[in-house]
Simulated scan of single mutants.
Amino acid sequence: MSDNNNKLQKRVPDALKEKGQYVLAFSVIASMLMVAGFPMFVIFFFGIFAYFLWKTFSSPSRNETREIFQFYLAANDVLRDDERRWFGFEMQEVIGRGERILRAINGAPPLVYFTLGALYHKAGDYKSAVNHLAYVLENESAEEATYIYPSPELRNYVKVLRKIEREPAEAPLTSAAVRALERARRNRGKVLLEESREQVQEQSRKKREAALEQAKTKAVLTESVQDVAVFQSVTDEVIENQHGNGFENKAKADSSNSKTSSRDQKRNENENQDNGNPFIRQKSITEVLHDIYDKPNSVK
């Protein structure tokens, strides 16, 4: 940023280049008209008309200068130490106005850079605050004395600024805002820059700690998921073994019961067969003779 602004300050002014281009273009057009046979008074009239058009459209606009001083007024209200509480969008609107000034003006005043840095510091954007404050406080090319070849906008700004400084009664609020910002730049500029750098380092440290904490939490969650998966697999295996043993014991019991029932069934069948068939057990001859001889004796 400093190199670009330094080049802008030391190069040939844009206004001089534009004048040379207009003069060259007018000379070429006038020569063509003379060759074409146009009268001299027509060419002269055309030249005067082109000159007035050029002055109308190439005169430096005062809108940028007015925008700069309005930015000073709004920024001074925000940066002033009072009991007012500013909304974030209000500060962002003022910051946006300052950024538009930097984009619109070649070689913007150093006070604009400082004011933007102070606003970023108040809004909590410490990285942007460091960029603007470091440029205006630690860069030698940001000093007002190094602005040798100003742009038309900067020249007009300085003209209005000197008028306000000579006659502060004509614009008392603007004069007070400019003096307050210059005083803050001189007295508190380095303090704001150091605080912004400390906050940037603190934010970087917190981001690193948050990243480490997130990594640790992720690792713990991964280990927990793995432990749950292992426990679930072991539990399922135990349950399967229990179910398998239960089924095996049940099968054995069913087999034993079936064998017992089959033996009982056979025994019952044999008993039924014995009761139903009288010839299933025949007595021997000796038993028959005993029965015959024992009966008369029992009668006597």
Rank of each mutant, 00 (worst) to 15 (best):
K55E: 15
Y51A: 15
E83N: 08
V225S: 10
S256M: 09
V238C: 07
Y293F: 11
G107D: 12
V28Q: 15
K206F: 03
V220H: 11
N5S: 11
P110F: 01
Q265R: 12
E67A: 12
I105Q: 03
Y72S: 08
A129Y: 02
V228S: 12
N139F: 00
R62Y: 06
G189S: 06
T115E: 09
S298N: 02
F231M: 11
A123E: 15
E138V: 02
Q232I: 01
S61A: 07
L53E: 06
D81G: 03
I280C: 04
W54Y: 15
G20N: 15
E209L: 13
D227F: 07
L192R: 15
G244E: 14
I43E: 12
S59H: 14
G117H: 04
R197Y: 03
Y147V: 05
N4Y: 13
R84P: 00
N249W: 06
V288Y: 05
R100A: 13
S261H: 13
Y293A: 02
R162T: 04
S31R: 13
I164G: 05
I280V: 07
I68R: 08
E140T: 10
T260G: 04
Q21M: 05
D274K: 06
L212S: 04
S261R: 14
I101F: 06
E182I: 00
A74M: 12
L173E: 14
M1L: 13
K17L: 13
S256Q: 11
K283A: 07
V94Y: 10
V23L: 14
V130T: 05
D3K: 03
E223K: 11
S224P: 01
V130E: 09
F41V: 00
M32Q: 15
K190Y: 07
E170F: 05
V42N: 15
